[in-house]
């Protein structure tokens, strides 16, 4: 991308090259390109090291006990079942299906679907993810849903 301002001003052209001027003490000049190169290297290098060492986790799907091994970063837990009673309402995530949530919370799927209060014919079932509920159930919000789950679990 070039800009109209790129052409340096010709207003003042001081003489070049006071190479003989003393370099400030305590400093060492480095090639200017080292700055961006080192920045990119350190940032992407850190990510690379994290990926190799298995600490590069980009999704909660592996962190909420949903089946994927911590650090696989693949979110493979989406297709897996959740051990009963391993989740609390705070662990519910948008990617989770109602079936997984019911398993993890230790409550029946029917009870959970009732709590969702889906309108008839909306097609909500155990394979529906919470994030899709926002489209299927008007006004649904996972944040507001959590206290309802807590209340149901206390009953």
């Amino acid at each position: 991308m070039t800009t109209p301002r790129q052409r340096p001003s010709t207003a003042t052209r001081p003489p070049r090259g006071p190479a003989a001027k003393p370099r400030p003490r305590g400093t060492a000049y480095v090639n200017r390109w080292v700055m961006p190169l080192l920045t990119a290297l350190l940032m992407f290098g850190t990510i690379g090291v994290a990926q190799v060492s298995g600490t590069w986790v980009t999704s909660g799907r592996t962190a909420a006990g949903a089946g994927g091994g911590a650090g696989d970063g693949t979110g493979g837990g989406a297709d897996k079942s959740v051990a009963a009673g391993t989740l609390t309402s705070a662990d519910l995530k948008g990617w989770m299906t109602l079936g997984q949530a019911a398993d993890g919370l230790g409550m029946s799927l029917a009870d959970l679907i009732t709590l969702v209060a889906a309108p008839a014919g909306s097609g909500v079932d155990g394979s529906t993810a919470f994030k899709d509920l926002e489209k299927l159930v008007p006004g649904f919000s996972l944040t507001d849903f959590r206290p309802k789950v807590d209340a149901a679990l206390r009953r």
Binding site: R16, P18, P24, G26, Y29
Partner: peptide, 12 residues
């Protein structure tokens, strides 16, 4: 335009 006046440098 002046060599050595404005540079990237390393310093503590």
């Amino acid at each position: 335009p002046t060599g050595g006046a404005l540079e990237v440098s390393a310093a503590a």
